[in-house]
Structures are given as structure tokens and as C-alpha cells.
């Protein structure tokens, strides 16, 4: 597996065969405290990559930096060869790198369907002047609505489409947020803890959706605490601790890496890292 993805033996910052995102020297400090200090990072195209690490490892901060929601003190990164440093968040999303948030950001007073429609690209009616001339955007709106309804069906939210997003459960909001991110047909989806707060009945279907994304050719990068999920769906795992990347590799190798066990568990060496609980549940 490592040979398919990485150019050399698995190690922090290893070069990838076909990287979609390459970051160099990305560093972010908060009042003297180093939150992120990544020397070199490559994300493989068309794969599912997991970003793991203990609380405060800087995973979400790295997400924020790469997607333009925060600015690093230093650093450069490219997406599909395009320099992204200093590019504002909305432009990052437009060129195909769409993220979700750890704390779900469903737009409560919009209907579920409107949430979805807002995710779409190329709606001329989103410009102030053209908004006034309905014929200019009616056709595109119909296309968007069809696409939105299709995705909602896939995520089993179609029954809710005319309800306010505020009425959804926490897990449903996670699903909505993910579905909404897919409306723009992104090249790279970055999911920040997609499983947090989702009840077990939904986790399995969420896992299937993420695998389905890969089958459609979308690259996935996700932050997760749940080791079971990481082991089950990821092709590659990157481990962060104290702002740095401490290990990389295929899931099974990484889980055995003493540096990871050290970073991840600290004193709790005897804990089980990769129990196949989900698999058992699924069976």
C-alpha cells in the first residue's frame, strides 16, 4: 500500500506519488505558543487520508490555515500546483477544496433544501443585479434543486428538505453539512471530525458515504478522534502532536508505530488502539 501512495518508506513528510496538496514550512503561533509547525506535507490524490492526533495537536488549526480561514505566520502550500498562501477562504472553496467544521454549521433558519442550494456553484442569481431578473437564474436554480434533492436522498434527508435546518438532530446536521459541501462537486473534501456527536446508527452510513466519495474520484482528508473509523476507511494516516507531524503511513503500520502510541496516548500505553468494534457492530 505504501508503495502505491508514497515514493519512499513511510516517514513524516514523505513525498507522494501523486500529491494533490503540498505544504511547506507552515507555522502558526498564538501569542508565543506554537499551534502548528509543519515542515513538509503531501496529501495523496484520490485517496482517503486521516489526520489524527491528541487534543490540541493543531489538526483543526492546520485545516483552518490550509483553507484560508486563518493565516499562518510563515509557510506556503499548493493545491493541484496552484499557490494557495494568502488566498481567501471563499476562493479556496471555489477552486475545489471544500471543508466542513468540527462544530456543525448548519444554517438554522434556512430550509434543508436551501442549505443544499447554497452549496452549489455557478448560480448567476447570486449576484445582486442578476438576482432581480429571474429568467437569468431560473434554469440554473432548477438544475441545482435536482442535484440537491438527489444528494439529500443519498444522505436520507429527503423527507426533511422543506424543514428548517434548526429542526434536525445533531447527526443529521453533520450529514447535511457534508452533503452541502458536496453540492459544489469538490476535488478535495476536508472533513473536520465528521463522526463527532453522530449516533452509532448513522456512523455506518456516514462511513459508506465517505468511501463512496473516493469511488467518485474525490480526494478526502479528514480529522478524526475515533481510531476505529480511521482504521476502517483511510488509505493513509498522518499523525500530529504538538503542532508537528510525528508519523505517516498506512493505517496498520502507523498504529504500531511507538512514536504514535507515545504521542497519542501518553501514559496509557496499555490501551487498545485499534479494536475492530465498528466492524463487529456492523456484522
Amino acid at each position: 500500500m505504501a508503495n502505491e501512495i508514497a515514493k519512499g518508506p513511510a516517514a513524516p513528510g514523505v513525498a507522494k506519488v501523486d500529491p494533490i496538496l503540498v505544504a511547506d514550512g507552515v507555522r502558526r503561533e498564538f501569542g508565543g505558543l506554537v499551534a502548528v509547525d509543519v515542515e513538509h506535507l503531501e496529501i495523496p490524490r484520490g485517496k482517503i487520508t486521516a489526520l489524527i492526533g491528541p487534543n490540541g495537536a493543531g489538526k483543526t488549526t492546520l485545516f483552518n490555515l490550509l483553507t484560508g480561514f486563518d493565516k499562518p505566520n510563515t509557510g506556503k502550500w499548493t493545491f493541484q500546483g496552484r499557490d494557495l498562501a494568502g488566498v481567501p477562504a471563499f476562493k479556496v472553496a471555489r477552486i475545489g477544496m471544500v471543508r466542513t467544521f468540527q462544530l456543525t454549521k448548519a444554517l438554522s433558519l434556512l430550509t434543508v433544501l436551501d442549505n443544499m442550494r447554497l452549496g452549489a456553484k455557478h448560480q448567476p442569481g447570486e449576484s445582486l443585479l442578476r438576482a432581480l431578473v429571474r429568467p437569468l437564474w431560473r434554469k440554473r436554480e432548477a438544475e441545482i434543486t435536482v442535484a440537491a434533492e438527489e444528494l439529500l436522498k443519498r444522505f436520507k434527508l429527503d423527507a426533511k428538505s422543506d424543514d428548517f435546518a434548526a429542526s434536525l438532530s445533531g447527526g443529521q446536521r453533520k450529514l447535511l453539512e457534508m452533503a452541502r459541501a458536496l453540492m459544489s462537486k469538490p476535488v478535495l473534501v476536508m472533513l473536520d471530525e465528521p463522526m463527532a456527536g453522530v449516533n452509532p446508527a448513522l456512523t455506518q452510513s456516514l462511513l459508506e458515504h465517505i468511501k463512496g466519495l473516493k469511488d467518485d474520484g474525490t480526494t478526502v482528508l479528514f480529522v478524526e478522534h475515533d481510531m476505529h473509523m480511521v482504521r476502517h476507511i483511510s488509505d493513509w494516516v498522518i499523525v500530529m502532536a504538538e503542532g508537528r507531524i510525528v508519523a505517516e503511513g498506512p493505517p496498520n503500520e502507523v498504529m504500531k508505530n511507538p512514536a504514535v502510541i507515545d504521542a497519542y496516548l501518553g501514559a496509557h500505553h496499555d490501551s487498545d488502539l485499534g479494536a475492530d468494534k465498528i466492524a463487529k457492530e456492523a456484522n
Binding site: F90, F101, A106, E126, A131, W137
Partner: peptide, 21 residues
């Protein structure tokens, strides 16, 4: 209009709307 939808989205959570491009 879709323009108004974007406004309402910003009212609810501007970071979410930003993340949608």
C-alpha cells in the same frame, strides 16, 4: 433570490457560507 439566500446564510453563520465559496 439566490442572492437573498446567501445573505440569510451569512446571517446564520458567515464561516459556513465562506466555506461554500
Amino acid at each position: 433570490s439566490p442572492w437573498g439566500r446567501a445573505l440569510k446564510g451569512i446571517r446564520e453563520d458567515e464561516d459556513a457560507v465562506r466555506s461554500l465559496g
